[in-house]
């Protein structure tokens, strides 16, 4: 459509440009002006002085900021969609454990556990041993300079540490519990297994957080994982009871640990900034 304008001799002058910009010309003339402007850069330039440069600069600054800001991740946009404020959404979305690799790892491990469970009774033991550890590991790796590129930002962010801790923990635990919860019904046997791992999982996570006010989160997570496996695996070998994690003593011990740790966490909440300053 590069043909010549329909009336080559017809152009705006400064006076008409000014009146058009002020809204001072009739609809019909304005339409002529607008059709002409589409094809005539010289007449478009006549309108430049009619809009304050400061106004255009302000809009340009916004455009530049938008195009230079990395696109929000899907998670961040989802969180924004449910009215989580922008800063929190970004910090949550930047949580390392939420990266695809972690979720993928969780899914692979659980799939293997479920498949093994069908092949061999000990697979259930593998599932019940791993399921409670995964959310804790996820939360542990959601913090700390080793794992988190936004560590500095998080440490300096104008959020209470407890707020950030709570938000991230909930999101990480939820993102891990969902795949585990989806895997659980595929286990052979007792339906109770579907939820048996929940209480130990929460107990381990909260205990790890309580410990994290004293030691680096990932060290706390490794220690607790070792402890958990040390309790569960020999128990399995000894009694050949694949449902050990669902037994009453384990559940009660989990409940006790959950209560004590949650209490400790509340008492120590003013020390929580330490969580962000630990060196790995």
């Amino acid at each position: 459509m590069n043909e010549e304008p329909m009336s080559t001799e017809w152009h705006l002058d400064a006076e008409l440009a000014g009146r058009y910009a002020q809204g001072g010309v009739s609809t019909v003339l304005a339409s002529s002006v607008e059709q002409h402007l589409i094809r005539c850069a010289a007449c478009r330039a006549l309108l430049t002085p009619t809009v304050p440069a400061a106004r255009l600069d302000a809009v340009w600054a916004e455009v530049l900021e938008t195009v230079e800001t990395p696109r929000a991740t899907l998670l961040e946009r989802l969180l924004r969609g449910v009215r989580v404020d922008e800063g929190t959404a970004r910090l949550v979305a930047a949580t390392p454990s939420l990266r695809g690799a972690w979720i993928l790892g969780v899914v692979v491990v659980l799939t293997l556990a479920v498949l093994t469970a069908h092949a061999d009774g000990n697979g259930i033991a593998l599932f019940l041993a791993l399921a409670p550890v995964l959310p804790m590991a996820g939360v542990a790796f959601a913090f700390g300079p080793a794992a988190d590129p936004t560590h500095e930002i998080a440490a300096a962010a104008p959020y209470s540490s407890l707020h950030l801790l709570a938000v991230r923990t909930v999101v990480v635990v939820a993102s891990t519990l969902v795949p585990i919860g989806l895997a659980a019904p595929f286990l052979p046997g007792n339906a109770w297994l579907s939820v048996a791992w929940l209480l130990p999982a929460l107990a381990l996570t909260v205990t790890m957080l309580a410990l994290a006010t004293r030691v680096a989160p990932h060290l706390a997570a490794i220690g607790l994982s070792a402890l958990w496996l040390a309790v569960v695996i020999p128990g399995l070998a000894h009694s050949r009871n694949a449902l050990l994690a669902s037994e009453l003593p384990v559940q009660l011990a989990s409940l006790a640990a959950l209560t004590v740790s949650a209490g400790a966490l509340l008492v120590q909440r003013h020390d929580l900034p330490e969580l962000f300053r630990r060196t790995a």
């Binding site: 329909m6 009336s7 017809w10 009146r19 809204g23 001072g24 010309v25 009739s26 609809t27 019909v28 003339l29 304005a30 339409s31 002529s32 059709q35 002409h36």
Partner: peptide
């Protein structure tokens, strides 16, 4: 909308007709 008309001295151009 579309109604900023303050000048009713309509000027006719060739383009008006073509439009």
């Amino acid at each position: 909308l579309y109604d900023h008309v303050t000048d009713l001295n309509l000027i006719e151009s060739a383009e008006d007709r073509v439009l």
